[in-house]
Amino acid sequence: MRVSSLANRVREPRAGGTQPASGLDWKSTVYGHGDNGYSTWTTPYTPSPNGAPLSIRTQQPAITRYGLLSSLNWVLGRHTVETGIRYEYGQFTEARYFSQVPLLGQGTLGDPFPEDGFGTNSSNTPWSANEAGFRQIQNTLKPETDWVYEGGYRLTTRLLVALLSVYHVDFSNRLQTISFGPVISPITAVQNVGGVTTNGVELSGTLYPLRHLSIYNSISYNRSTFDDDLSTSSGVSNLRGKSVPNYPSLMYKGSIAYQIGRLNAHIDGNSYAHRYLSYLNDASVPGYFIANLGARYVLADRGPLSRVDVQFNAYNLFNTRYVATTGENGNPISGDYQTFLMGAPRQFFGSVGVSF
């Protein structure tokens, strides 16, 4: 049983534009956003201290952020040059409590009980620590910050639309989930690991060789490495220069789509390089490729119906066995905790949608 309530406050963006010179357009936007709320969940996974098999978990998130976007757009004949900056400050807080529920015959579910914060479920956040561990890190963890620099070029013609993007990111006080102890029941904690430097490039394009036919390809390379070694109770780990776990360095996506009249069909594929499981990069899962197939046909004016959509989709067409999620229970400094989730096998989906 889950009940949610949300209060949202959004300040409408204020945007301004001016033209300081012919063909030159300068736009700026100032925005702010805030929301808070709560949700409750009656969970059987954490019993109450009084012996009741259930407890109530209350979660109270709050978000505050504001920022500025400013860009210059310069039209030079058939070419457009655009540059700009973006700055955003964001703060996220979250309180999570477990409340004791009454034993049978001693109360009614849903009545208040003191919030005691006993236990918590394991997750890749500071909340994965027990109370003593959380108290220890709450005054030492620093918020993660980053500076992002990006440049790109876009080409638009009748036969080809292409985009090249190059970026560099400097992270400070990077937060990572680290697991220690035995494989069966490791201790998971969030820790500042210093700086992380990310460099990447992405090239994508859509080709229109024939009428009704489009061919899309995208390839990206990302290299994210730690800037500092990591000091733990077990000593110093040589993380400097190692890749951040759980992220592939090379990704590819391709799609072929054909649309004529009311028929639309496509086949696409996604490829991911290997991902490291440990911070020292001595364990990894292999890369994989997945293909998908889909088709849709639209029927119009079918008696009392104004539109009927018939769709068929096949996921993981070649029934590839692959690891979908890694680091599900954190990542160790070295070795393999085997905390990952296998991907879904081949699946077929069919649907019919109607409009009156």
Rank of each mutant, 00 (worst) to 15 (best):
T64W: 13
N246W: 05
D301I: 06
V308N: 06
N50L: 04
L213A: 10
Y337I: 15
G205T: 09
Q176L: 07
Y167A: 12
T188I: 08
M342L: 14
E131A: 10
L175A: 04
G110A: 04
A344S: 15
W127I: 07
T157A: 11
L76M: 14
I178M: 04
I267Y: 15
G195T: 10
H212L: 05
Y247K: 08
I333T: 09
R11H: 15
N139H: 13
M1L: 11
L68Y: 10
R86P: 00
Y89W: 02
Y221Q: 07
A324H: 05
H212K: 06
P143T: 04
L341V: 15
S122E: 15
V285M: 01
D268V: 02
L305R: 10
N8V: 11
R307Y: 01
Y258R: 03
S122K: 09
I187L: 12
L277K: 12
D111M: 13
S70G: 06
Y97W: 15
P245W: 07
V201I: 13
Q136F: 12
L163H: 15
G241E: 03
D228Y: 09
E131V: 13
D309L: 05
V310H: 05
N292S: 02
S204D: 12
D229M: 09
T108M: 12
F113C: 09
N222D: 11
T157V: 11
P248H: 00
V201E: 08
L213Y: 12
T156C: 02
S179V: 04
V196A: 08
A300C: 00
T83H: 03
S179K: 00
E328C: 05
S48Q: 08
